[in-house]
């Protein structure tokens, strides 16, 4: 029973990470946009959905929990709002940085993600500062006993993953997707063909940010509690880069495979390590994962740059 529960919650997280990896694949895999600030979009999606679905605290609780607003809306509206607000942030980021050289975009996105995290951490009026928000509503929670709830949630996130996967695949196989790949391969050439390079990059960035916002919202309602500490760059951004690079940049199936493998390494190594190491070492053991994931990323990039699946040959369907 314990094992099964562990597997189900593992599957939910792996599915949510698959969504992030597809979002990154749209931006980096197809268009060559370096987004090192996934954690920022993750946080915006999660907090937006939390604020949309939670009630405004009243009475004695209002003294402990501060939030800018609480709209008490249904789950689906919250998730959608998470995606939309994240897309708007993507629009602003794009307006500031898309005309810059690609390396600068990467550094700028690191900075934006850090700024967003610091903002949620410092501005307690917005979403309760470092303590974060708890008690996020979980959809359909009353149709099964609480111990079985994760099965329902797995179904919900799987539906989202399928929709997002189909949308990303349809997009990349369309003429629009061809332009994105043309920009990735040779920006000057694409511009010479009369394509508005900045506009296409913006669309790709915003589309990816929308997907990431939805992923963030789904995460928020799964854990039912969020605080700024979750959106650290390691956990929120770079693990997703490792996932996509491992699975195969430019391949949505690869993004999903990579997400499952890396998340398995991340969550199962903890179990394994805790069994093997002496208790005196237990507080340091989780950091073995940092080394593992870091080395994995380096080894893939240096030795196997294509990842597991590599980029799929794209044939446009009319």
């Amino acid at each position: 029973m314990g094992i099964l529960n562990f597997l189900i919650s593992f599957a939910v997280m792996a599915t949510i990470y698959s969504i992030f990896a597809i979002g990154l694949n749209v931006q980096w895999g197809y268009t060559g946009l370096l987004n090192f600030g996934i954690a920022g979009f993750f946080a915006v999606g999660a907090y937006t959905s939390a604020l949309f679905t939670l009630k405004m605290p009243t009475g004695a609780i209002a003294g402990y929990i501060k939030q800018a607003f609480g709209l008490n809306m249904p789950f689906l509206i919250g998730v959608l709002a998470g995606g939309i607000v994240s897309a708007i942030i993507g629009l602003i980021v794009g307006a500031l940085t898309l005309r810059l050289k690609e390396g600068y975009l990467a550094i700028a996105t690191i900075g934006i993600a850090e700024t967003i995290r610091l903002f949620f951490n410092n501005e307690a009026w917005l979403a309760n500062g470092p303590q974060g928000l708890v008690g996020l509503p979980q959809p359909l929670h009353n149709i099964v006993p609480p111990s079985f709830y994760n099965y329902i949630y797995l179904l919900i996130v799987a539906v989202f993953l399928v929709i997002i996967y189909i949308a990303a695949e349809k997009g990349i196989r369309s003429p629009w997707g061809r332009v994105l790949r043309a920009i990735r391969e040779d920006e000057v050439m694409a511009a010479a063909d009369g394509k508005n390079v900045v506009a296409f990059k913006m669309q790709s960035l915003v589309f990816g940010a929308f997907i990431m916002g939805i992923g963030g919202a789904l995460y928020a309602h799964f854990s039912a509690a969020i605080q700024p500490g979750v959106f650290e760059p390691l956990f929120g951004t770079f693990i997703i880069w490792t996932m996509l690079t491992l699975g195969g940049t430019g391949n949505n199936k690869g993004a999903i495979i990579g997400a499952w493998i890396v998340w398995a390494v991340w969550s199962w190594s903890t179990l394994l390590i805790n069994k093997v190491v002496p208790p005196s070492f237990a507080t340091r053991a989780p950091f073995i994962r940092y080394v593992l994931i870091g080395l994995l990323l380096v080894v893939i990039i240096v030795r196997y740059p294509k990842g597991i699946l590599g980029e799929e040959k794209q044939v446009s369907k009319f």
């Binding site: 390691l234 880069w241 490792t242 950091f287 073995i288 940092y290 080394v291 870091g294 080395l295 994995l296």
Partner: peptide
């Protein structure tokens, strides 16, 4: 970034 992560680990 992988290097950074491994070193910190």
């Amino acid at each position: 970034i992988g290097v950074a992560w491994a070193l910190r680990g």
